[in-house]
Design a protein around this nucleic acid. Structure first.
Lengths: 214, 214
DNA sequence: GACACTGTACCGGCTGGACGGTACGGTGCG
DNA sequence: CGCACCGTACCGTCCAGCCGGTACAGTGTC
């Protein structure tokens, strides 16, 4: 039964993924209270029994949501890291983090480009159903924090930049006065300029740090 | 019944406030799923009937939570605004917003100094129970955004600073790698320095903006 | 190539328990 | 006595999880 795994998963993946996608869609459109097994199953076009076959418990469903989006985020960040225009300049991971946060996403494809509402869904579901699952998200954040803090620009800079980048995420996910269009790009560029500022201060080729050097 | 409001509230405030405090405590310690009328009543030392006397429905309880904390936030921000050391310098409301976000709070007194977990409680409860109540929070954010955007430093700066300030709030509320001690102060000072940077760029008395002016 | 057997994928009904809300009864204070 | 305030018992609903059952695709066996 072990060697059959690859073939079987190739068959079942679509249903499993459809269920996860349905869960995200339910949270995004109808809100958290409607995230019930019956609703998710109906939206996914599966019966409740079918859902429970893939996810034996609601916790398992939400856990899968969270794990999927953490993995997607890692992927998106690694991609931006590889794309960096000035790899030698300090703050490469910070730039990747900011760019990944501000990446536009296809609303139709929330799962493979897990952002905003997508990631929010797992996040919120964890809070609402079993706060223990928040541990998964906390661990991921600790990991990201360590990565950013050792990016050469100090822990305070890394944290402040992370906060600013997370902002777009929370603002859009919760609808808290999110910026749009040119302002959105302006916010991103401004945050990136803060990274450059710290990189300039850290780089011996520039001024030594505080602005009174001017 | 209108003119009795003052007298009645003077009598009931302690019980009412105790109930709100209990709701926050329940969310903070046991998590959202435990936020039931029975639990809140028990923690507050009141019976369920007593709770329902003050808040005829669960929505009403959560609405009161949200309204209380929005009012507290307004108060905290106005206080920091009045305290500003350099009132003539642009970005006064932005500084107030950041300082209020980073204000330390007494964990024992979450209600009167509504922050972090306190405000989170209403926030989360709204999401989990009746997403329509999010409208209250959204309105408040729109209002704050308008205030900050018209602070003289442009909308992009206002938004980016708001994001960074909200970060400490979400990080501590959800436990997402929050900074502590000196790093926490460093993050706050760094964000404040970003405001100064923008203020310097906006102020004709300083260099025109980008750092190549050095 | 008919047959029994096995594991996967999914279905639909059911139930036990929890929770929000109601009805009503009691108590103390003015 | 009346009213604000609080307690208790109860009801209707909703939901997570379980269970018996179905369809079917392989797989070996003779």
């Amino acid at each position: 039964m072990r060697r059959q795994a690859a073939k079987i998963s190739a068959v079942t993946r679509s249903t499993r993924e459809e269920l996860l996608r349905a869960a995200v869609r339910v949270v995004a459109t109808d809100g958290l209270p409607k995230l019930t097994l019956a609703t998710v199953a109906r939206v996914a076009g599966v019966s409740k029994g079918g859902l429970l076959y893939h996810f034996p418990t609601k916790d398992a469903l939400i856990r899968a949501l969270i794990e999927t989006f953490i993995a997607e985020w890692d992927r998106a960040m690694a991609l931006e890291h590889a794309r960096d225009a000035e790899p030698s300049k300090p703050g490469r991971w910070l730039r990747a983090y900011v760019r990944a946060s501000f990446a536009e996403f296809d609303p139709d494809d929330m799962l493979t480009l897990g952002l905003a509402l997508g990631d929010m869904a797992g996040f919120l579901a964890a809070l609402a159903v079993s706060p223990e699952l928040l541990g998964l998200i906390r661990e991921a954040y600790e990991r990201w924090h360590r990565l950013l803090a050792s990016d050469g620009l100090g822990e305070a800079t890394a944290t402040a930049i992370r906060f600013a980048a997370d902002g777009i995420y929370f603002a859009e996910g919760f609808g808290l006065a999110p910026p749009t269009g040119p302002t959105r790009r302006g916010v991103r560029d401004l945050i990136l300029s803060w990274i450059d500022l710290a990189a300039g201060a850290a780089d011996p080729g520039h001024a030594s740090g505080t602005r009174q050097a001017c």
